[in-house]
């Protein structure tokens, strides 16, 4: 399959000649995560630039500046979030926590924190190829108090528009989230667990939002990342399967599903 994203191709050449804006660079990185061709071109052009500069780190100076800017943005967002938490005091509603988390996530759009991966043909760890078939636990486990909710978030806008929760869906429900917004998951688990969130695609790939991440027990705890909605992964409805495992034994303790649609 060949990449036809001409914006990405143009961005690659602009990156190489040093004329790509930071925002466009973030978009290119996001695209390159799921596009093997552009990923390879990004890598190769970066190597050429680093070799030209005889960079000791192996990354071009301009790239280091970009990384510095991103790290500082994220640190500033974390600081704002910590301040907002302190100001909010005892208010610990889920909405508040989602919004607080969104401050760092909204302005960032880092490929590094996007937990969306396209896994070729094989299901993510702990997921059976035919879906999340319960092994022993079955429907009883799915009805337990383990659960996942998804939120559609309108990110922070250019004119200081605060992040806004546009829609929400619980187990068995459907979340509608348009391109340009972000999908945020939150979980409820009565015990510490490993959580996998993944959706099969018609092509037989798996879109993995989280792969066996360790989660602490809690109610409606937002995951530490959100995923920008792009047509590269959400052009039609997908069924996200959530699987909770015992962290010690790896045994399935609960599973549930919800749908996300553009």
């Amino acid at each position: 399959m060949s990449c036809t994203d001409t914006t990405a191709h143009l961005a690659l050449e602009q990156l190489f000649v040093g004329e790509l804006s930071e925002v466009a660079h973030l978009e290119l990185r996001e695209h390159a995560r799921t596009c093997a061709e552009c990923h390879e071109a990004y890598d190769r052009l970066t190597r050429v630039e680093a070799q030209l500069e005889k960079s000791r780190s192996g990354l071009p100076a301009a790239r280091m500046k970009f990384l510095e800017s991103q790290v500082l943005s994220r640190a500033a967002a974390q600081k704002r979030a910590a301040q907002a938490r302190a100001d909010a005091g005892g208010d610990r509603s889920l909405w508040t926590r989602v919004r607080l988390w969104l401050v760092p996530a909204g302005g960032l759009a880092l490929a590094g924190v996007l937990a969306l991966m396209l896994l070729p043909k094989s299901p993510p760890p702990g997921v059976d190829a035919d879906g999340f078939q319960a092994r022993g636990a079955g429907a009883a486990a799915a009805k337990s108090i383990y659960g996942v909710r998804a939120f559609c978030i309108q990110p922070e806008g250019a004119k200081n528009v605060s992040p806004k929760v546009l829609a929400e869906a619980g187990p068995g429900e459907t979340l509608t989230c348009a391109v340009g917004n972000r999908v945020q998951f939150a979980y409820t688990a009565p015990k510490d667990a490993r959580l996998t969130l993944a959706a099969p695609t018609p092509a037989g790939d798996w879109l993995t939002f989280a792969s066996r991440i360790e989660v602490k027990k809690g109610t409606d705890v937002p995951l530490s990342f959100s995923t920008p909605v792009t047509t590269s992964w959400l052009s039609q409805p997908i069924e996200v399967k959530a699987r909770f495992e015992d962290p010690a034994t790896g045994k399935l303790v609960a599973e549930t599903t919800l749908k996300v649609t553009p």
Binding site: R47, L67, V71
Partner: peptide
């Protein structure tokens, strides 16, 4: 991969 390396640098510093 340079892209993945950059992501790792970002994540560690973050």
């Amino acid at each position: 991969s340079e892209l993945e390396l950059e992501n790792a640098v970002l994540e560690v510093f973050a």
